[in-house]
Design a protein around this nucleic acid. Structure first.
Lengths: 180, 180
DNA sequence: TGGAGCATGTAAGATGTTACATGATTCG
DNA sequence: CGAATCATGTAACATCTTACATGCTCCA
């Protein structure tokens, strides 16, 4: 009966200035993308569930120049639940399912060109990812976010940059190896 | 209508000397653990599906000193399907869902001790993981696997080692940061 | 008028885990 | 005899994505 972490991801985002399903999705795509992803198919039902459980409240709000929206806010019960979760220890290191490594693992009977093609495409995607991180970094630094929040965002972003950099180096070395 | 990669993971393992659901699970837990995981709840149904599709054959085999088992073998149609998949490009970098980073992202209102506790626990798990990789590496080098397969296994393992090492360094730096 | 951005939501299906159920053999 | 290892399988449930459905407003 484990509770889904996604619930707390949404709850947490309600504390960072995101108050609609739409803006939560934007925040996730923009800033949590390297360690958490959610689709609308999860966000809206989760928001509803949080409201049912008394962890959030919903309010229909009219906007001038934009469609109506539902504004959600975290309740004190919600804050408590979030707090409890934030302080509970992380049980396991999650495993990333990596299609590229899976292919490489079985590549013994493949010609080197095929492997090199995969490696180079992967490398390009890693570079792309790295640049995205740098863009997010600039964005966080330039936008006047609450400084306190921004610190933590930059720290998690740094994790992404560091590990991506390591993957890039591995990729370059492995390409070297297959070119001999 | 994307086809699940898990199907090809199982198909691929049939080419590396694993011929039963049980041994496939062992191989995954032992060597693919850092980039792919499957439970029995997936393995057996997948094996059955592969047989239904003509990509594998099943044979009941009696063993002396052990229970009966079902031995699976890849067919030529299976080899072809695997080949096609192996050569098809990897579309996307997958995102690892990382509970630890999710917590860190929202840790602005937490006391530093809590954050440090999480960081230290995470660091310990990363060290553990790194040691597991080294153990697998020794195992591959010592066991007389087919040299051709072993090469590719060590390359993917190296990816795990490199990125874990980078995560360890990030962890240590971040602990330093919070200790000031 | 048509596209982009804002905004909410659901239904179907894919994917995966956990817990359960069963049972053989070996070794201490 | 009991634990460990070998071995196969399913049912219920959790989780998540994709595709679809809808409709507003602003601006070119």
């Amino acid at each position: 009966m484990k509770e889904s972490h996604t619930k707390y991801a949404v709850l947490g985002l309600l504390t960072t200035g995101c108050h609609t399903g739409y803006s939560i999705k934007q925040m996730i795509d923009g800033s949590l993308n390297h360690f958490w992803k959610i689709s609308y198919g999860q966000i809206y039902p989760t928001l509803k569930k949080l409201t049912d459980e008394g962890l959030a409240t919903a309010k229909d709000t009219a906007q001038s120049g934009k469609p109506d929206k539902k504004e959600y806010a975290i309740t004190s019960a919600g804050k408590e639940a979030l707090q409890t979760w934030l302080q509970s220890p992380v049980e396991t290191l999650s495993t990333e399912k990596n299609e590229f490594l899976l292919k490489l693992f079985f590549s013994r009977h493949q010609p080197h060109e095929t492997t090199l093609m995969h490696l180079e495409q992967y490398l390009a995607k890693l570079h792309e990812r790295y640049e995205t991180y740098q863009a997010i970094e600039r964005m966080i630094n330039e936008t006047l976010f609450d400084k306190q929040d921004a610190d933590y965002w930059l720290i998690t972003l740094n994790y992404g940059k560091k590990t991506t950099q390591a993957a890039i180096e591995w990729c370059e070395e492995t390409i070297q190896y297959f070119n001999n």
